[in-house]
Design a protein around this nucleic acid. Sequence first.
DNA 1: AATATTGTTCGTAATTTTGCGAACTACGAA
DNA 2: TTCGTAGTTCGCAAAATTACGAACAATATT
Lengths: 114, 114
Amino acid sequence: MMDTEKNKDYTIDNEQLARFAKAMGHPARITILQFLASLDSCYFGDIHNELPIAKATVSQHLKELKEAGLIQGEIETPKVKYCINKENWEKAQHIFGAFFEINVEKTACCSPEP
Amino acid sequence: MMDTEKNKDYTIDNEQLARFAKAMGHPARITILQFLASLDSCYFGDIHNELPIAKATVSQHLKELKEAGLIQGEIETPKVKYCINKENWEKAQHIFGAFFEINVEKTACCSPEP
DNA sequence: AATATTGTTCGTAATTTTGCGAACTACGAA
DNA sequence: TTCGTAGTTCGCAAAATTACGAACAATATT
């Protein structure tokens, strides 16, 4: 049959952007990313110390950030060192940058506030 | 008592960034935002037509984007016209921009891949 | 008045998220 | 070996998210 129907699947790029955004969709995870980027420390204990939540919960948030690709961790016995995943961080920079490049001025649709 | 304890609350900025990110944390909502920004149309029906989900679900996603402040809607009987909330869109641009301005090069912590 | 169009809201179900304490692992020091 | 440190994982509960069809509302058309 002909392919006249519109493809309604989400694009890979949109899936990826949503994935990153979702990972960033919690204040604890934003705080973690900022802390890691500021490089006051990379250790779990110090990250935990910045946050108002239990260590088990911090561990979970770190796991999610890791699964989204935004951070990585390595064991440095007896501590665990986390850091930004540089490659994917840059990917996120670009993908968010492109997303927000859209010129809203030019595309105003609803009438402005009267 | 003295306030020697570290304040572990999330900052307003981090809460706001997480709020925006969370709203963007679903491919359908990313697609909606892009569609509205591209201005092929502003009407619910056309938005629905772009997505692989039921209209009730589309309506819910639009509601969430509206509650996060990223879009706004107005009735244009018998249709409903949605659009980007310009003010908050720019706010999001800035807040995401600032977030990703962090220089990861300078802050690399974990050893690079060997 | 009956119909059609355009979306929203309701009720419901399945899944995911968030959070915690307790138990556990791994290692080094006493 | 026993203890302490540093985190992870487990088990659970509460809440939020995602999704749908059916019912509903508001308006225009016949």
